[in-house]
């Protein structure tokens, strides 16, 4: 626990982060690819027709919920709190889908894989989507939606 931040989970966060980094390392060293979820999801569904071989994209996208399910089973549940209204999910989903394709990546591809490679595009993308997220939540708070 961190003093002043009673809700933070630094240890679980760090260990979970190591697992995520290991997963991305397996994709890089095993298959020579970036573990970018937005790109692989677009490829798996056929929305993108270039990128990873279809089977590899589908297997990764199936693996994500499978791994989360295993943790939920072993740990006796995973805490999730979703917005009460459906609209933040629909509007957020549309923007995340469109934006990650236009910007060629999301938190995994740009944030984890690109930043660790010191890719200039990924450093800029990560700075921008983080800044945009901070401003968005600040505005939501200002409008008392949170």
């Amino acid at each position: 626990m961190i003093p002043g931040f009673p809700n933070a989970m630094p240890v679980e966060g760090f260990i979970g982060g190591l697992l995520i980094g290991l997963a991305a390392a397996i994709m890089l060293l095993g298959l020579g690819r970036i573990a970018g979820v937005s790109g692989l999801a677009a490829r798996a569904t056929g929305i993108a027709d270039t990128g990873a071989p279809r089977g590899i994209a589908v297997a990764f996208v199936i693996g994500l919920p499978l791994g989360a399910f295993l943790i939920a089973t072993l740990a006796g549940g995973v805490t999730t709190k979703f917005p009460v209204s459906i609209w933040p999910l629909i509007i957020g989903g549309l923007l995340v889908g469109f934006g990650t394709r236009l910007g060629s990546g999301c938190t995994s591809g740009h944030g984890v894989c690109g930043m660790s490679r010191l890719s200039p595009r990924s450093l800029v993308a990560t700075a921008l989507f983080m800044a945009s997220g901070f401003v968005t939540v600040a505005l939501l708070r200002l409008g008392a939606f949170l």
Binding site: I15, G16, L19, G55, F60
Partner: peptide, 15 residues
């Protein structure tokens, strides 16, 4: 790829 995806999902859930 399946192993990588599952580890990734496990990490997200655990973190």
């Amino acid at each position: 790829s399946l192993v990588s995806g599952a580890l990734f999902g496990a990490g997200l859930a655990f973190s």
